[in-house]
Design a binder for these strands. Structure first.
Length: 260
DNA sequence: ATGCCTTGTCGCACAAGA
């Protein structure tokens, strides 16, 4: 079973590219972020034509997440628990049934947090605290559980071409990195780093200043797996070539393969 | 030091992204 995550930067602008990638990569489950669409306007039909079930949690203009799955999506939960006043659509979770039992997926778009000094950075940290609390709860269920998405965190210096350029950025603050570690330290395995320790393993290249051409990238899209998911883990990949397509997102898909 | 692009918005320039 192949499970992917991708920040598509707008479903309306990206629909053709996303459909092309789905035909090529054929993930069983895909977690999409930054759909930038309300639920009513999300284009279900082209995805259903490719055999996918669709669940969305969107809002007007910004943010928004979606789950695509070849098998039915069950027990869908929208929003990250812990703050009823949070109106930003950044989390959706659902399960799929497999021959060996249910697998649960959390699709997340973690707040960017810039600029430092604004209310956005404490919002990011508060959101991460809620994610840690929620993951803790899910891990107690001892089932295959994955948290996939755009974490907006550069975990380590090796995860940026020019780490010195990110020292004043919310993505690379000690608090952001510490909370990401606190999340993995609950007992979640970070898929890509367990596949490769290679430098220049990136998932995002800015649209500006020829970042893609210079390979000036960062690794901020991550897949974390519970022990029960890690037991079935058989491989991972980053579909880097998509960044070179016409009208690309600034992020590229990241995926894992699980047995059965 | 800042913008450099890209997207969405009841556009008529701006916010947000990272």
């Amino acid at each position: 079973m192949k499970i992917a995550t991708w920040n598509i930067n707008g479903v309306k602008a990206r629909i053709d590219v996303v459909l092309e990638w789905l035909k090529e990569a054929s993930p069983d489950v895909a977690c999409l972020q930054e759909i930038k669409s309300i639920d009513e306007n999300f284009p279900h039909q082209p995805f259903e034509d490719l055999g996918y079930n669709v669940e969305t949690h969107g809002q007007k203009g910004f943010n928004g997440v979606a789950l695509l799955s070849k098998s039915p999506l069950e027990d869908v939960q929208r929003g990250l628990p812990g703050n009823d006043g949070d109106e930003q659509a950044r989390y959706i979770e659902a399960s799929v049934s497999t021959e060996t039992g249910a697998v649960r997926f959390g699709c997340l778009y973690l707040p960017n947090g810039n600029p430092l000094g604004s209310e956005k950075f404490p919002y990011k940290l508060e959101w991460m605290d809620r994610l840690i609390a929620h993951a803790e709860k899910r891990l107690r269920e001892e089932m295959p559980f994955l948290l996939l998405g755009d974490y907006n965190v550069i975990p380590d210096p090796i995860d940026a071409k020019n780490p010195e350029n990110w020292l004043e950025d919310a993505l690379f603050q000690p608090e952001s990195r510490q909370k990401f570690r606190a999340l993995t330290n609950l007992g979640l395995t970070e898929a890509v780093r367990s596949c490769t320790e290679a430098a220049e393993t990136y998932t995002f290249w800015d649209y500006q200043a020829g970042a893609w051409q210079k390979n000036n990238g960062i690794r901020i899209d991550h897949i974390l797996m519970s022990a029960q998911a890690t037991d079935r883990f058989s491989g991972c990949g980053i579909d880097k070539h998509i960044r070179g397509w016409e009208k690309p997102s600034d992020h590229v898909p990241v995926w894992v393969q699980l047995a059965a």
